[in-house]
C-alpha cells in the first residue's frame, strides 16, 4: 500500500517535471524567439526562466528514477553471479545511491538556505528571489532522498519475506531492459 503511494507520488512529480520542460522552458523560449524576431525585443526573460525550469525538472523528476530504476549500472558481470552475491551487489548499489541522494538533498538545502539568508535575487530584471527556484529544486531532491533511502530498506524486508521477485523488481539490475522499453514505447506510442 505504501509502496504504491511512493510510486504514484513519484510519477505525479515526474509528470510535473516533464510539464515544466514543455510549458516552463520550450514555450517561453519560443515566445522570446518570436518576439525578438518580429518585435525586436525579448518578451518573457525565457533565458532565466528556462534555467530555473530545468532545475525544477531535475528536482521533481529525480525520485521517479529510483522507483523505475533508471540509473545506469554496468551489470553484465554481476548479472551472471548466483542470487546471494547478486542480491548483495544490488543492495550495495541501492545503499550507495541512497547515501548520494541524501548528501545531494543536504547540500541543496544548505544552498537554498544560504540564498534565503542572504536575500539573494536573480540577476535579470525579474529579480526572482533565488529561494523560490532553489526551494522547488530542494523539495524534489528531498523526496528523492526519502525514496532512495527507503528502497534498500523495503528490499531487505521483501528478502526477509522470501519474495525474491519483489526484491528484483525493487532494486534488481534491470536497467538495460527498462531503458530499452523506454525507447521502444516512446517510438510505438504508449497508451
Amino acid at each position: 500500500m505504501t509502496d504504491t503511494l511512493i510510486e504514484n507520488v513519484s510519477r505525479w512529480l515526474a509528470w510535473a517535471a516533464g510539464a515544466v520542460i514543455l510549458f516552463g522552458c520550450a514555450l517561453p523560449i519560443t515566445v522570446d524567439v518570436l518576439s525578438r524576431y518580429f518585435l525586436n525585443r525579448s518578451a518573457v526573460e525565457s533565458f532565466e526562466i528556462s534555467g530555473f525550469g530545468l532545475a525544477a525538472c531535475i528536482g521533481l523528476g529525480m525520485a521517479h528514477t529510483v522507483t523505475t530504476k533508471a540509473h545506469i549500472r554496468v551489470d553484465f558481470a554481476v548479472a551472471r553471479l548466483p542470487f546471494p552475491l547478486r542480491a548483495a551487489c544490488d543492495l550495495l548499489a541501492a545503499c550507495v545511491l541512497a547515501v548520494v541522494a541524501g548528501a545531494l538533498a543536504w547540500f541543496a538545502w544548505k544552498t537554498a538556505a544560504q540564498s534565503y539568508a542572504m536575500g539573494a535575487q536573480s540577476m535579470s530584471l525579474l529579480r526572482i528571489p533565488m529561494v523560490i527556484p532553489q526551494g522547488i529544486w530542494w523539495v524534489g531532491l528531498f523526496w528523492f532522498a526519502f525514496v532512495a533511502v527507503l528502497a534498500p530498506l523495503r528490499a531487505v524486508l521483501r528478502l526477509v519475506r522470501g519474495d525474491r521477485e519483489g526484491f528484483n523488481e525493487l532494486v534488481g539490475s534491470a536497467d538495460i531492459n527498462a531503458e530499452i522499453d523506454e525507447a521502444v514505447h516512446a517510438a510505438e506510442g504508449r497508451t
Binding site: R36, N40, S42, E45, F47, M123, S124, L125, R127
Partner: peptide, 25 residues
C-alpha cells in the same frame, strides 16, 4: 531599436534606457 546582448539587470536597464532592446543569451 537594436538587439543588444546584455548581461545582468544593470546592463539591461542601461540598454533599455538608451532605446535599445536588451537580449539575454
Amino acid at each position: 531599436g537594436r538587439k543588444v546582448r546584455a548581461s545582468g539587470a544593470s546592463q539591461q536597464a542601461f540598454v533599455s534606457s538608451l532605446g535599445g532592446s536588451p537580449v539575454s543569451i
